[in-house]
Design a protein around this nucleic acid. Structure first.
Length: 156
DNA sequence: GCCAACGTTGGC
DNA sequence: GCCAACGTTGGC
């Protein structure tokens, strides 16, 4: 079992949206480094749900990966904001996974709170200029951040 | 392969 | 809205 951090703009898709739906495809990722991380996901993996480009940005909750990676068909949909004009059914380079809601943290963990945590300074998320929307986490870091949020999920 | 121009992300 | 940082594109 591995741990991940997934970013989403809450205006587009939030932890509450995932809670209401129960499960949803995590699609629309259009960055090769992020895609390569998705390729390594497995059912049973856990992830932290990060709200980006909002005020305040930070960790809102967590969930579980419930599918293997599969082709992201939203790249073929001209009405989708994730439409990729270069993609075709034959050449579909993008991947997505299905995810399930686990919990919304009792205490939202703001980016400033993460920056203030000395044990988390090595996180890719906190590196200057970081833009990656899918990144791997070590179990220890996942557990610590869940704890900061007052959550109950643990990676073993 | 280099690099300038451009587009996007995301915090502030 | 601004801007820094990064990724991608495309000419050469």
């Amino acid at each position: 079992m591995a741990c991940w951090l997934l970013k989403s703009e809450p205006d587009a898709f939030s932890i509450d949206d995932l809670q209401h739906l129960g499960k949803a495809p995590w699609d629309g990722v259009r960055n090769y480094q992020a895609r390569n991380h998705i390729a390594h996901m497995q059912p049973g993996d856990l992830f932290l749900f990060y709200h980006s480009s909002c005020s305040p940005p930070g960790l809102a909750g967590c969930g579980e990966i419930i599918s293997s990676p599969y082709s992201d068909q939203s790249a073929l949909d001209p009405n989708s904001s994730a439409f990729d004009p270069r993609a075709s059914a034959d050449k579909l380079p993008w991947l997505c996974v299905d995810v399930r809601w686990r919990e919304k943290f009792p205490c939202f963990v703001s980016l400033s709170a993460l920056k203030a945590c000395s044990e988390l300074q090595h996180l890719q998320l906190l590196k200057r200029g970081n833009r990656l929307s899918v990144m791997p986490l070590m179990d220890n870091d996942f557990n610590l951040m869940v704890k900061l949020g007052g959550g109950i999920t643990t990676a073993c």
